[in-house]
Simulated scan of single mutants.
Amino acid sequence: MGAWDIGHFDNDTAADFGGRVDDAEPGRKADVLRDVLSAIADTGPEQYADCGEEAVAAAALIAAQCPGGEPVTTAYGPKEPLPPLPADLRPLAVRALDRLTAENAEPLDLWAEAGEDQAWLAGIAALRAVLAAA
């Protein structure tokens, strides 16, 4: 993962994902988010969960539409505003975040190697709190 900061879109994979969301037809944007969240949420604990950066970015976009959520204002996120997202994406995003903060998950492993796992986990916990409360 090429990362330049700890933010949800501050890595190459998430930045590319922001462009992919922009490229999707308006009626398919929620499907793009659902696909990346499901790919992580549906992995079992014995499977290695990789490429979670997109799921974190998707969770951030969903949380931005929740009460108490922070808007995604980074230049690396989607440039176009998202339509209102379906509420059923929220529990899916929570499941994906839970999977990424468990053992056998690439993003957590990479942040631990960099000595930034606690800072990364704090950002994930904040996202999860907004999503779970909504």
Rank of each mutant, 00 (worst) to 15 (best):
L127A: 10
P71I: 06
P86I: 01
A114G: 07
L61D: 02
V94W: 02
A125Y: 11
D117Q: 15
A59M: 03
A60D: 06
A59G: 06
D98K: 04
A63E: 12
A75K: 14
V72W: 07
P67T: 00
R90T: 09
V72S: 05
G77W: 08
E70K: 11
P107C: 01
E54C: 03
R90M: 10
A57H: 00
A122T: 07
E103C: 10
L127T: 10
A112C: 02
A87Q: 10
V56M: 08
A87R: 11
E116R: 08
I124R: 04
L92E: 04
P71T: 07
A126D: 15
T101P: 04
E113F: 13
P83C: 10
A60F: 03
R90W: 05
E103Y: 12
L97D: 06
E116C: 06
A129F: 02
Q118W: 10
A114I: 06
L127I: 09
P83A: 11
L61A: 00
L131D: 06
A93D: 01
L131Q: 06
N104G: 12
G123E: 15
T73Y: 12
E70D: 14
A55R: 12
A63C: 13
L127S: 09
D98L: 03
A114N: 08
A102H: 00
R128H: 13
G68H: 08
E80M: 11
T73Q: 15
A132R: 14
A126C: 14
G69E: 09
L100F: 01
P78I: 07
A63P: 14
E113W: 14
A59W: 01
L127R: 10
A96T: 07
P83W: 09
P83Y: 10
